[in-house]
Design a protein around this nucleic acid. Structure first.
Lengths: 225, 225
DNA sequence: CCTACCGATCGGTAGG
DNA sequence: CCTACCGATCGGTAGG
């Protein structure tokens, strides 16, 4: 479920009445402005890199003055970490939604999903996270990892672990069935590489659809059983 | 195994015999000092990113003062471009050497290389370029591409084209034989992604060898024929 | 969230 | 390649 950031008149009254904020917490209730900062930061970090993007660039892109991002985030690194966190949460939600929908559809036909079908769903969902709408957050996480402090890495690493954990039994089943070959640990990393690299070359305007891409992955990686 | 760019082989022992400390002045040995700058820049650009690495960091790592890199390179961007150029030239040399050695070995047995064997050689050579000794240059090229000006990109793009051109007929033959499936253009990009992503996770100290990795790639991507 | 501002650092240069 | 230096920009802060 994406957070709506475009100014809808209905959402304004829903926010807390003006007044003194709780001083201890930085992340106040003004989700809207904060969200605009996150989106601007994600876009600029992706286009230019973390090191080449100034907090002034981000402020300007979000329609603020140069000091204002530090009202929402402690420092530039915390902004990067927030972008990555948002990206992972969104990715986990999309992954879970895609799996649940597929399971429900199979159940309606009184059958279960094959491992092959599971992989298809995961691959397709992964491409959507990488290349679909609002897809700056995860590429930033993938390609700016080294700019994070080690403290911030651990929190996001937990979510990455959750995300990958869904794949493991699927890949294991395919390997057991002989449909996926090569040492499973290495094979998993190679597969993720094939998918993640797509952010470097995929151009939705000129090339294949995400369905084409997913189909190619299935054909390329899986053996006939 | 490093490529000497402008040094004569005789000059290295000469300097060493004098035991000259690096800061001694007025010896013109541009090739060597330039090479030290390139190596330091490659390492730092890879570790920290282009934007997060100052020219002072690089100068210090090469044993110079802050202004000295600009004696060798016009500006910071030109230094980045030089790192990438060096990486691609080295990669092309290694690729050509690996292919020639394999072809010669097959010829000694009065036979030709199969497409499968060609791919094996290319994959193994690619992993060496990415993960072997002196392997900072190509990862910098892969992950700092956006920091290059468009002028500098075109020169390096030519070399990238040369590098990929060697793969195309091999992949085409495997596709024709049914050993490699999926739309060939997409399949090539997915394959490169699987390989290139390895720089993000491979740890030579704890994990498999480059031979293990190459074997896994072959098993994962190729069908039995 | 803005105004006004600061100390630090950066890429780069002049001259030897 | 070093010394000495500069203008610009950066991350970040005080106070309202």
């Amino acid at each position: 479920m994406r957070v709506e950031t475009s100014d809808s008149p209905a959402s304004a009254p829903l926010r807390r009445a003006r007044g003194r904020p709780r001083k201890t917490v930085h992340e106040r209730d003004d989700g809207n402005r904060r969200q605009e900062l996150l989106r601007a930061a994600a876009r600029l970090f992706r286009q230019q890199g973390f090191g080449a993007t100034s907090t002034r660039d981000i402020a300007t892109a979000a329609g603020m003055r140069s000091g204002s991002p530090f009202y929402h985030f402690e420092n530039k690194e915390a902004l990067l970490a927030a972008v990555m966190l948002e990206g992972m949460q969104s990715a986990l939600q999309r992954q879970a939604a895609a799996m649940q929908a597929a399971v429900a559809q199979a159940a309606a036909q009184a059958r279960t999903l094959s491992a092959r079908e599971c992989l298809q769903v995961l691959v397709r969902s992964h491409f959507e996270v990488l290349l679909g709408p609002d897809s700056d957050f995860i590429p930033v996480m993938l390609y700016e990892w080294r700019s994070l402090s080690s403290e911030q890495r651990s929190e996001i690493n937990r979510l990455k672990g959750d995300y990958e954990a869904v794949w493991v039994p699927v890949l294991k089943a395919l390997h057991a069935a002989g449909e996926l070959q090569g040492e499973p640990g290495l094979a998993r990393m190679l597969l993720f590489g094939a998918l993640n690299w797509s952010v470097q070359w995929f151009d939705a305007a000129r090339q294949a659809t995400l369905d084409d891409l997913s189909e190619c992955v299935m054909q390329l990686f899986l053996k006939r059983s």
